[in-house]
Design a protein around this nucleic acid. Sequence first.
DNA 1: CGGGTATTTGACGACTGTCAACGCCAGTGG
DNA 2: CCACTGGCGTTGACAGTCGTCAAATACCCG
Lengths: 248, 248
Amino acid sequence: MPKSLESRPDKQRCASCPVRERALFQVVPEEYINDAESNRTDQYTLPARRHLYEEGAPANMAYTLFDGWMLLYRAHSDGGRQGLRIALPGDFLGYMPPGETSLHHSALAITDSILCGFKQDDLHRMLDTHAGLASHVTRIQARYMASCQSAMLGLGRKSAEQRIAYLIAELYYRLHNRQQLGADDSIMPFPITQEMLGDMTGLTPVHTNRVIRKLREDGIFTAERHRLVIHDLPRLLEIGEFTNLNVE
Amino acid sequence: MPKSLESRPDKQRCASCPVRERALFQVVPEEYINDAESNRTDQYTLPARRHLYEEGAPANMAYTLFDGWMLLYRAHSDGGRQGLRIALPGDFLGYMPPGETSLHHSALAITDSILCGFKQDDLHRMLDTHAGLASHVTRIQARYMASCQSAMLGLGRKSAEQRIAYLIAELYYRLHNRQQLGADDSIMPFPITQEMLGDMTGLTPVHTNRVIRKLREDGIFTAERHRLVIHDLPRLLEIGEFTNLNVE
DNA sequence: CGGGTATTTGACGACTGTCAACGCCAGTGG
DNA sequence: CCACTGGCGTTGACAGTCGTCAAATACCCG
């Protein structure tokens, strides 16, 4: 467990969490959840700007994100980062197959976050014995794969403008599908810095800023400090070549 | 089943295949394999330059590649392709989770190929009931994810030269780990066109060619029609920033 | 031998990165 | 209350990697 991570003294159970129905937790067998003796399913809180884990760290734990946004990324030797995924509530993080001893990416809290931790060893044991769980993880992984492949298409072939538009559209639909948008769903929470946006899209912060300005001037969306207003969703989807087929 | 696919009349069993020990097939339960009545596990042959399946096609089947190389890619609206993975013997292709009706990528035979097909419906049923199989698929997926994330890092942050070097190094180790290199393991089979290399690395064929020339002039490797000779493996790894940690 | 495909090379242009500077805002401490 | 500070956003000038267009050459298969 990273030392920056704080285990809640009260060991509050994840079952009380609002995103419970989306989470891995849902299919973890009862005997696991109720194994009070081992305290396996602890709930953690993590303040913004702190790492949950870093590349190369031993893969001891996997997590379900209950609240908050996190940035999963891989570091490049020149100091730059490539964002892999923006984790939203309900996402499953840090799982490594048996035999992999260390993590291949880092996880950074964008906002204050709440997570539920699972020991990798326990997960592996359960995957081997509980088919329903393994099947569920397989489904989760397949969706992440599809999202990862969409990102590859973007990084390899799309223009900066297309990549930004796609990312915004993807976030919009992911939040929409999780009912995390308010009554006016053209306004979405946006705790991401432009630098992180650049991390995700393979662009520098400077160029990211230029593209955002252009999209604002073209009346597509306006990105403010903590929120983003979409003015023209159809054109956003068109520019990003986004189809919501592969968004969970 | 794509019409370009030919089912062998003799229904030769996959069990006779040399890569059997690496394949998904290995963990498919006996009662499935021996279900002669349903002919579920047919072996197929596919000539070079033919598609096994194309983006948007119904996801009826998944496959284990027994022999040959295939290119998995996604098409961009401008006609370009983004390569997702070069499938080598032993790889598992085309799996989609339940609920996904169509495939998100295309699979093109680079060389003549031999595959073993599974019906998605059967796979899903088995995943729900045979924990060992689901666990195995989970492991496979996790490895593909890691590879996909390495590719994202490359596409987003690395130079053209680094990407090409990384891809060659990755192929080298994948072949090496599968014992598919000859006595002189500095020589590897190389049925890939420069255009496909560009597809994988997010570069145009023209620029791909320039980079290959530079790497040849620098004494790193020489790419010929059907084979590639590595002259300086350490520098290849260094240039591509390749560590063989995440190669299956 | 011929036609299609793949490779190779050059000239040119554009998208994106780099460097540098400034402004804005929030939090902090005097 | 205000100055200070650090992080983030914004803008401009310039450079470089890589894409585009075009054409010539080499190679493979029938």
